[in-house]
Amino acid sequence: MTNLQKYNNVFIERFAVTEQDLNAALVYQSIPAWDSVGHMGLMAAIEEAFDIILDMDDILDFSSYQKGKEILVKYKIDF
């Protein structure tokens, strides 16, 4: 499984969205599932999927599907 597939699966499983929903429009609070509670679950699932520990600033900056990919590059996860 590629990193992109892993990344996408986390969103699909946490937010019950489809592959087509994974685009630049998917940002924090753009769907009901991605609220404060959903965000904590998403971050935990990202850490588990990639076996990393996110910095606090990165957790708070992780404000969109696209931004998340940029942040994960810092953890040597390439897409």
Partner: peptide
């Protein structure tokens, strides 16, 4: 409003 960053509600 200026600090509404993800996860802060919890």
């Amino acid at each position: 409003e200026s600090a509404e960053t993800p996860g802060m509600g919890n």
